[in-house]
Amino acid sequence: MGSPLAKAIQLIFSANAELLNILSVTAKMSLRSSVLALLLGLPLGIWLGACRFPGRGALLVLNRTLMGMPPVVCGLIFYMLFSGVGPFRHLKLLFTVDIMVMAQVVLITPIVIGNMETYVAGVAPAVRETARGLGLSRLRTFVLLCNECVYQIISAYLMAFARSIAEVGAVSMVGGAISWKTNVMTTAIMQHTNRGNFTLGVALGLILLTLSLLVNILVSVLQRRLSR
């Protein structure tokens, strides 16, 4: 009964109101940011992977840079844009879930793009050559190419979602970790640990790890289906 782990597990199953609120804010944020990142990243990734045009190399370098951007830098940029001195201050978005979603979209979309680009660049030449040899239209070829990417799309989405729930740097800066409003799992872990309240921290940590495990199991199942 005494160990932090036991207490944390007890807390998870006790329907604690604050815990549930944190989970619900996290779900709202991560579902929105990951779906938006997918909607933006999917067409861009397929386009970059399938088409050859001047400037493509530069765009890939840019994307890779964005993929490696430290979340706190992203948070800083959004903070400066939307805080009391920023150009968008009148939108009053700072410390809302909306701005957390926006910052995360900037962080996560490059992951979707990079993921799709690599895969599409691998299959597109062979798909295109084969489809052309059969006299198929460009539209038909594109539909076939997308069909070949279905598992990859799901796996890219899951990775974006996993990154979103685990990210802390950007969301703590622009969201402010306000309890009952913008506190998500990662920021709540930091906050409660700082206050010496380990139980909630450990409970959230367990949930995060379990979610991450589930997502990764799904990804690996998909990857097995992908491999030839």
Partner: peptide, 22 residues
Amino acid sequence: TVGYMPQRNYAFRMSARANILL
């Protein structure tokens, strides 16, 4: 009209019949 079978053929992720019906 030109039909072409490349040296490396791409098998689409569907049944052999569905591939042929392409």
